[in-house]
């Protein structure tokens, strides 16, 4: 399968911080949405910054459309739409002026499409961006990212801080975008409910390391949480335990194969698991 984005053991350390990205690897296929999940400070933005070349990686390879992107590779950037969390554009501009600037930056800039999105998102084109609410600025950033016909959308916490109605509206736009087979989205978020709705793949990052990458269906239908007693936990095979958390009288065990576990541990209750729960288990839980 071809991949629009591939990270191979990407590492990045900072002189003034203990934080580092440690051999981050994952692959995003064409025509798919990948949710990039992790708690605040886990390394989501650093990874995205490495992908987009706004920071320099120390080691590893990042392939975009099969090529390593350098500063001079403008053609590759034509095909990437980016949305950052917060204010993407200067407040002294209005959307009409922004469109004028973007038209000079991107060869494929489509002013008509941009205006359509402004209309759809109910964004006034002549109003200064600094007067926009947070939700409006995020919608504007999404409109700008889509209006140059990118093939890959990279969104860093694009839905955080938005109300559920706005998030729903934006997720719909992402689903429309992905209808084209060549289009893909990398969506970093800690709002896992959004990812459960639209993502095909989920990649978990914790303390700069990828701790799990799997398809959403695999997580939804194959993963499970075993609720067991201490004695039952002690008898479990190591291979059945992805992570575990001890509570007062119970131990929660995350397993990658709930069906197998059902057959194997007949007296253990096994629940379906949400992405949120998987994240908490992976981050807070212990490994055998």
């Amino acid at each position: 399968m071809d991949h629009i984005l591939e990270l191979q053991e990407v590492s990045k350390a900072y002189r003034r911080s203990d934080f580092k990205l440690d051999k981050v690897s994952f692959r995003l296929p064409y025509g798919a949405i990948m949710g990039f999940v992790g708690e605040n400070g886990a390394g989501k933005t650093t990874t995205i910054d490495c992908i987009l070349n706004t920071i320099r990686k120390d080691e590893g390879n990042i392939l975009l459309f099969g090529k390593e992107m350098r500063d001079e590779d403008k053609e590759l950037r034509e095909n990437i739409g980016v949305v950052y969390d917060g204010d993407n554009f200067p407040g002294y501009l209005n959307p009409a002026q922004l469109s004028d600037i973007m038209g000079g930056l991107y060869k494929q800039w489509d002013n008509g499409l941009f205006l359509d999105y402004l209309k759809r998102f109910r964004l006034p084109p002549k109003k200064k961006i600094k007067t926009y609410s947070r939700g409006m600025t995020m919608k504007l950033a999404i409109a700008a990212a889509l209006a140059h016909h990118p093939k890959l959308l990279i969104l860093d916490e694009a839905t955080s801080g938005l109300d559920p109605v706005m998030r729903e509206e934006i997720l719909e736009v992402f689903l429309e975008f992905i209808e084209e087979e060549e289009h893909s989205i990398l969506l970093s978020s800690h709002i896992t409910s959004d990812l459960e709705k639209i993502a095909d793949y989920i990649t978990f990052i914790h303390e700069g390391r990828i701790i799990l990458t799997a398809s959403k269906n695999e997580l939804a239908y194959e993963y499970g949480i075993m609720r067991c007693k201490e004695s039952q936990f002690k008898e479990m095979d190591k291979e059945d335990v992805v992570a575990y958390r001890k509570r007062d009288f119970q131990t929660d065990v995350l397993t990658a194969d709930a069906k197998k576990a059902e057959r194997k541990y007949r007296d253990v209750v096994i629940d379906r698991v949400s992405i949120d729960e998987i994240m908490v288990m992976l981050v807070k839980g212990e490994r055998l």
Binding site: L52, N53, T54, R77, Y84, G86, D87, N88, P90, Y106
Partner: peptide, 20 residues
């Protein structure tokens, strides 16, 4: 200096223009 109030300086680096 006005650009610093937003992420525009970083955003521009993702556009098809070189740092030069």
């Amino acid at each position: 200096e006005k650009e610093n109030a937003s992420r525009w300086r970083k955003y521009k680096l993702t556009a098809p223009v070189s740092r030069k």
